[in-house]
């Protein structure tokens, strides 16, 4: 006996609409975006204005433009002035003795005689007394060699550190040093 079963009819699945009817939806999105941008900008602006007006180093000029406060401008000028009044110096041995040697390849101390260079350096005004209080204990003298702009002093310092290698006081050593005993690097 041949039973036949009718083929099931496919169920018609309703297709979602290809293009939703969302004109209003789009309009809503556009308005929301515009509002969002406007709010963001206003928030940023408000925060910016509150920001610089709330600190003590910025003030508004006559027309409301932000500028540094008088105190801040004066501090800047003072520090620039210090940079224009730098000193290049040498620390030299005040007496014969063994001084720490940071550039000696195989020893920690080196014998220096009075007047021999221990270190070259640069200082600017305002530095907390770099060596004053330790000169005496370290048996050193501070010898000012050049004054002027800090850049000029730094160049001279570097020149002297390198040229130390061929100073007579260094050449006489069994093992001349590459740089002064107190200079750990070439600056």
């Amino acid at each position: 006996m041949n039973a036949t079963f009718p083929k099931p009819r496919p169920i018609a699945v309703p297709m979602p609409p290809l293009r939703p009817n969302n004109g209003k939806y789009l309009l809503f999105c556009a308005i929301a975006c515009i509002l969002g941008v406007v709010l963001y900008l206003r928030m940023g602006a408000d925060e910016g204005e509150e920001g610089w007006r709330s600190v003590d180093f910025i003030e508004a000029d006559e027309v409301g433009t932000p500028q540094l406060t008088e105190a801040r401008r004066r501090k800047l000028e003072r520090e620039l002035e210090k940079l224009r009044n730098a000193e290049q110096y040498a620390l030299i041995a005040a007496k014969s003795g063994y001084y720490p040697c940071y550039s000696c390849p195989d020893t920690t101390h080196i014998l220096l005689y009075p007047g021999e260079v221990w270190k070259y350096g640069v200082t600017v005004g305002g530095e907390k007394r770099r060596y004053g209080q330790s000169l005496t204990r370290r048996g050193l003298l501070y010898l000012r060699q050049l004054t002027g702009e800090v850049q000029v002093c730094l160049e001279e310092e570097k020149r002297k550190i390198y040229q130390y290698a061929i100073l007579p006081e260094n050449l006489k050593r069994h093992k001349p040093l590459k740089r002064p005993p107190g200079n750990k690097v070439d600056r």
Binding site: K95, G97, P100, L141, L143
Partner: peptide, 17 residues
């Protein structure tokens, strides 16, 4: 500071050539 040449009375100078 390394007290290399410590003594009760100590002297130094900030000098020019």
């Amino acid at each position: 500071s390394e007290a290399i040449f410590f003594a009760p009375f100590m002297f130094s100078g900030i000098l020019s050539e």
